[in-house]
Every structure is written in C-alpha cells, then in structure tokens.
C-alpha cells in the first residue's frame, strides 16, 4: 500500500447525500477478476449517457473541477460492501474523500486501499461547498500526522478523528494482512480453546 502523509489539492464537489456504492460503481462493472480499470467507470450512470458520451452536467465532466480530493454529502458509501467502490475512487485518482458521515464498510475498504476518509462536521462541510462555489480552484490541505484538514480559502482548520492503528498503517504504507500474518501463533493458540 502507498504511504499517505500530507496532501494539498483542489477538490471535486459532490453535494449529494447517501451516495451508495451502487452509484460509485454499478454492479454490471463488477465482473472483473483484478483491481484495474474501475476508475473509468466511477459514477458511471451519473457520468455517461447511454451511448458512452459524457453527461455535461456531472461534476467529473466539468473541467472547472479537478484534484485528488472528493468532497461529498453525508452518508457516503452506504449499501453494498463492494471494495470495487474504493478501487474505483482510488483508480480515478482520489486519495481523500471528505464527508460529514461515512458508511462503515466503505470506510474500512477505503482505508485498506490507502484512500483516506476524512469526517468533518456538517458546518465545515457546508463551508467547503460554499468556498468551492465561489472559487473552483479552492484547495484543501489534509495533514494525516496532525490529523487536520484546512480550507485554504478561509484558512480555517479542524481536526479529524482516525484510529491510531489505521493512521500508523497509512503513514507507513502497511496493511492489515501483514499484521495478522505476524500473529499466526496466537491464532493457533486461540483455536485450541474452541469448545
């Protein structure tokens, strides 16, 4: 897994609530047997017309907005557990998703792929949407070490919460499997206690 330490980037705003993983990557794209290429179909049904041409009114097709931070409405990533959603977000080039609320499984899946979900208050989220409305070139700075997110238009900075273990994993580019494999003896000892 890639390390994540600090990032300053312009943002892509998606002020929709309850964006579910079926929207992030529709089921018909889940037929692959590897992790590649999902970025091309990120938000496929919102992004493309039936004939494959881009829908002009969808934010990913708006050249005003770009960057590696997606800012989305509350309850992002609900629904299906498909990790393909995280692969699609990562594959498209997003390294951070900012929202006021994330669904559990999505949050785990994102972290397991080096994509950082940043939870901010509803007010801070609304301010980001306002700032990016005023200036599409708004940047945010995400500092994982200090657990802060800064709106560089207003200069306002807030802290975000992340589990210490997951933070270490991201800072060092380590994943859970490495950890679990190092605990094989404990697992075998546990199995002896099963009635």
């Amino acid at each position: 897994m890639e390390k994540f330490i600090k990032l300053t980037s312009t943002v892509v705003p998606l002020p929709i609530e309850n964006v579910d993983t079926d929207q992030i990557i529709p089921a018909r794209f889940l037929k692959a047997t590897d992790k590649n290429g999902f970025g091309d179909n990120l938000f496929a049904d919102w992004r493309y017309n039936k004939d494959g041409s881009p829908k002009a009114d969808f934010v990913l097709n708006n050249s005003l907005y770009s960057g590696s931070i997606l800012v989305a409405g509350k309850n992002f990533g609900s629904g299906s557990s498909r990790e393909h959603a995280a692969w699609a977000i990562d594959g498209y080039g997003f390294k951070v998703v900012v929202s006021s609320f994330f669904a559990d499984i999505f949050q785990n899946n994102a972290l397991n792929n080096g994509v950082l979900p940043v939870v901010v208050s509803a007010e801070f989220l609304a301010e980001i949407f306002t700032s990016v409305n005023v200036d599409a070139k708004l940047t945010l700075t995400i500092d994982l070490e200090n657990q802060t997110v800064t709106n560089n238009a207003t200069g306002k900075s807030v802290t975000f919460v992340i589990n210490t273990y997951k933070k270490e994993c991201l800072l060092n580019g380590l994943d859970d499997i490495d950890y679990l494999l190092s605990k094989k003896d404990l697992i075998e000892a546990y199995e002896q206690t099963i009635i």
């Binding site: 499984i105 792929n113 273990y165 859970d176 499997i177 679990l180």
Partner: peptide, 20 residues
C-alpha cells in the same frame, strides 16, 4: 457482518479480521 475484498483475503489467509 459484511466485509470488503481485502478482508476476504485476511480471512482466507488467517481466519481473522481486524475490526473495531
């Protein structure tokens, strides 16, 4: 509970997951 594919790999490899 449902898990992602990275966790499927963990279970296959170690019969464990990491969960808060």
């Amino acid at each position: 509970f449902g898990i992602g594919t990275s966790e499927v790999e963990m279970v296959l490899a170690t019969q464990c997951v990491l969960q808060s």
